[in-house]
Lab assay of single mutants.
Amino acid sequence: MQRVNMIMAESPGLITICLLGYLLSAECTVFLDHENANKILNRPKRYNSGKLEEFVQGNLERECMEEKCSFEEAREVFENTERTTEFWKQYVDGDQCESNPCLNGGSCKDDINSYECWCPFGFEGKNCELDVTCNIKNGRCEQFCKNSADNKVVCSCTEGYRLAENQKSCEPAVPFPCGRVSVSQTSKLTRAETVFPDVDYVNSTEAETILDNITQSTQSFNDFTRVVGGEDAKPGQFPWQVVLNGKVDAFCGGSIVNEKWIVTAAHCVETGVKITVVAGEHNIEETEHTEQKRNVIRIIPHHNYNAAINKYNHDIALLELDEPLVLNSYVTPICIADKEYTNIFLKFGSGYVSGWGRVFHKGRSALVLQYLRVPLVDRATCLRSTKFTIYNNMFCAGFHEGGRDSCQGDSGGPHVTEVEGTSFLTGIISWGEECAMKGKYGIYTKVSRYVNWIKEKTKLT
């Protein structure tokens, strides 16, 4: 034993070699072989497995989906700052455009905790909710729209109204504003409101030439003092309507412009014939205590009207009353817009006519005020429907199939267009061939041609 100890002390290297040989010859039971080890760690190889990531292109799944990435790591994937920024906006807080917040056709661009709407022409605001041009839906104005110097929408209202708090709607500024039905039992019968379409306001006024200088022999019209197929109006439903009495009662109609003036057809009036105007009328054979009678003290036909040349060209006249009318729910003026808007309103496509005229061709006159909704007829169809001249200051309205029309005794009465609950004068009943005849239409004086003249002559002093 002493000898062994001496050998170990003198030859430590020998001992180490012996131990190493023993270990190498022993069977290893701690580690699995290569094949079995792979069965336990069965993990798919990654895209760049075996390579240094710093030297390969980034992978979106590896960089940002398996674990949260930084902007720089995302930049490695896209290799483009702009594309990385677009991805980053949604990656950080989701897609803010998912709810489609942009209105009126706006395009949404996502941002971090926010979004941006790219608005089409005519709109602005956070969600493109603000109209900035009158060309689109009248700028959301209830009545009139004008573009300011910086191309912003400025709404306005006709006389007797003021802008509401929203700067879009119009509200009454006087007790009985024009064009409004205020009798409670008839307010439910107000005709369907007309909503502004998209309009090209630059070209809204037709490029028409008034044929002022045409000389033409007097034409022989049949029954051209021209509501057939209409309905009984309720008291106060058309408070701007008046009836004219002269040699015979209810020979023509008219509309209240203001307390002192009536507008009617020029062919209705004769110099030297006494005319009485009755406002607030409903049943011409009954006294309903809503009527107001006034005498006409002055007749002003349009300066281009000449019955000797043509009885229905420039067929418009103004009547001055001896005493002002007292405005109330049964006696209310009709609204008159400017030339541009009167023309736009007419193009809405349908209007209402009213009167006490004959209820059928050569038949009896109506006792109760009649009204009828009539569609506008395109000019080409209008011209083809008659052998008589249709001037540019006239328009056609009615039904091709016949059966409904204005008729004798309705002449001078109103053709009105309702705009968001307020009625505007767009025409004056003038003439036609018979009444409600198939293929024939009622012919009306186009008020847009005469609004400046009306307003100039009827100013209240």
Rank of each mutant, 00 (worst) to 15 (best):
Q2I: 07
Q2R: 15
R3D: 05
V4D: 06
M6E: 05
I7Y: 09
I7M: 14
A9F: 15
A9M: 06
E10C: 15
S11G: 15
S11V: 14
P12Q: 09
L14D: 01
L14M: 07
I15G: 04
I15S: 04
T16G: 10
L19Y: 05
L19P: 02
L19V: 10
L20E: 00
G21W: 10
L23H: 03
L23G: 00
L24T: 05
L24C: 09
C28D: 02
C28F: 01
T29F: 12
V30L: 14
F31S: 15
D33R: 09
H34L: 05
N36H: 13
A37K: 04
L41Y: 15
L41C: 04
L41Q: 15
N42G: 05
P44D: 14
R46I: 12
R46S: 14
S49N: 15
K51A: 15
K51V: 13
L52W: 10
V56Y: 08
N59E: 08
N59V: 04
L60F: 09
E61K: 08
E67K: 05
K68N: 15
C69V: 03
S70W: 03
F71E: 15
E72S: 09
E73T: 08
E73Y: 05
E76H: 15
V77T: 13
E79L: 04
N80V: 07
E82S: 08
E82M: 08
E82N: 08
T84C: 04
T84H: 07
T84W: 04
T85H: 07
W88I: 07
W88E: 15
Y91A: 14
Y91P: 06
V92A: 15
G94M: 09
Q96T: 06
C97E: 02
C97D: 02
C97V: 02
E98A: 11
E98Y: 12
E98C: 07
N100I: 04
L103S: 13
L103A: 04
C108G: 01
K109S: 06
S114H: 13
C119Y: 02
P120K: 06
F121W: 08
F121Q: 13
G122K: 04
E124L: 10
E129T: 03
E129S: 05
E129R: 03
T133F: 10
N138T: 08
C141P: 00
E142Y: 04
E142D: 10
Q143H: 10
Q143D: 00
F144G: 00
F144C: 00
K146W: 09
S148W: 07
S148I: 09
D150E: 10
D150M: 11
D150G: 12
K152Q: 10
V154G: 06
S156E: 10
T158G: 04
T158I: 09
G160D: 10
G160L: 00
Y161H: 04
L163G: 01
N166E: 03
P175Y: 05
P177Q: 01
C178M: 00
C178D: 00
Q185A: 07
Q185G: 12
T186A: 10
S187V: 11
K188D: 06
T190E: 10
R191P: 13
E193H: 09
T194R: 09
V195S: 13
D198N: 10
V199K: 09
V199E: 13
Y201H: 08
V202P: 11
V202Q: 09
N203R: 07
E208N: 09
T209M: 12
N213K: 07
N213V: 10
I214K: 12
I214V: 12
Q216C: 06
S217C: 06
S217P: 13
T218C: 04
S220Q: 08
S220A: 11
F221E: 11
N222R: 11
F224W: 11
V227A: 13
V227G: 10
V228E: 09
V228L: 07
V228R: 11
V228H: 11
G229F: 11
G229S: 11
G230K: 09
D232G: 06
K234I: 13
P235W: 06
G236K: 06
F238M: 10
F238N: 03
F238K: 03
W240H: 01
W240F: 03
Q241N: 13
Q241M: 11
V242D: 02
V242F: 01
G246E: 03
K247T: 02
F251E: 10
F251T: 06
C252F: 00
G254Q: 00
I256T: 02
V257Q: 01
V257F: 01
E259Y: 03
K260L: 08
K260R: 12
V263T: 02
V263D: 00
T264N: 00
A265I: 01
A266R: 03
E270R: 04
G272W: 03
K274N: 02
K274S: 03
K274T: 03
K274C: 01
K274P: 02
I275W: 03
V278T: 12
V278C: 04
V278E: 03
A279W: 01
G280F: 02
E286D: 11
T287P: 11
T287M: 14
E288F: 05
E288N: 08
T290S: 09
T290L: 05
K293D: 03
K293W: 11
I297T: 03
I297E: 03
P301F: 13
H303W: 08
N304H: 09
N306K: 10
A308T: 12
D315S: 03
D315W: 00
I316H: 00
L319K: 00
E320S: 02
L321Q: 00
D322I: 00
L325E: 01
L327S: 03
Y330N: 05
Y330E: 04
V331S: 03
P333D: 00
K339Q: 14
K339R: 15
E340Y: 15
Y341F: 15
F345G: 01
K347L: 07
F348D: 07
G349R: 07
S350I: 08
S350Q: 15
G351L: 01
Y352E: 02
Y352T: 05
Y352P: 02
V353H: 05
S354D: 01
R358Q: 12
R358N: 08
F360S: 10
F360D: 13
H361S: 11
A366M: 08
A366I: 11
L367K: 15
L367S: 07
L369G: 06
Q370D: 03
Y371R: 13
Y371A: 13
R373F: 04
R373V: 07
V374R: 04
V374N: 02
P375K: 14
P375W: 06
R379K: 13
A380V: 08
C382N: 02
R384S: 07
R384N: 15
S385T: 13
T389E: 12
T389K: 07
Y391P: 13
Y391W: 10
F395H: 02
C396S: 01
A397P: 01
A397N: 01
E401C: 05
G402T: 10
D405T: 14
C407S: 04
Q408E: 08
D410Q: 15
G412W: 08
G413T: 10
T417I: 06
V419F: 12
V419C: 04
S423Y: 13
F424K: 00
F424T: 01
G427T: 00
I429L: 12
S430H: 05
S430L: 14
W431S: 11
G432W: 05
E433L: 05
E433T: 08
E434F: 11
C435A: 04
C435T: 04
M437K: 11
K438F: 10
K440P: 07
K440R: 12
K440M: 05
K440S: 08
I443K: 04
Y444G: 03
T445Y: 05
K446P: 03
V447S: 03
V447R: 00
S448K: 02
R449D: 12
Y450F: 04
Y450L: 01
V451N: 03
W453Q: 00
W453K: 00
K455M: 06
K457S: 14
T458G: 03
T458W: 01
K459E: 15
L460F: 12
T461R: 08
